[in-house]
């Protein structure tokens, strides 16, 4: 078995076990109320933590300027998502803005 396959299988198994963790454990262990109430914030907190560095950082440094195309197009996409609540419009307008701004700037 090649080195790449050892890595792939290890990561695959670890990822699967991570995803299974609480789904499996919940039968055996009832989490306290505070944990249950905190779970509602998981999607919003995790996704925002991925989004903001993706659009606001360039090569690991904060880039809050008008020549950061990802920040501008991301900002437009956030407005579209907020107004339309449509994934199709958000991704579509976001990508077109990105291309238009890359061409303009």
């Amino acid at each position: 078995m090649s080195k790449m396959w050892v890595i792939m299988l290890s990561v695959g198994v670890l990822t699967f076990l991570t995803r299974l963790s609480f789904i499996y454990l919940l039968d055996k262990w009832q989490p306290p109320d505070v944990i249950t109430r905190s779970l509602r914030f998981v999607p919003v907190a995790v996704l925002t933590a991925i989004i903001i560095p993706e659009i606001a950082l360039q090569n690991g440094e904060l880039a809050l300027s008008l020549d950061n195309i990802r920040l501008l197009a991301g900002g437009i996409a956030i407005l579209v998502a907020w107004r339309t609540k449509s994934a199709l419009w958000t991704i579509g307008v976001g990508m077109v803005s990105f291309w238009a701004l890359s061409w303009l700037l």
Binding site: P43, V44, L47, T48, I50, I51, E54, I55, R70, G74, A77, I78, A81, W82, K85, S86, A87, T90, I91, G94, M95
Partner: peptide
């Protein structure tokens, strides 16, 4: 990033 924006913002 756009995909996650589309899910998170709403």
């Amino acid at each position: 990033a756009l995909t996650f924006i589309a899910i998170a913002v709403p």
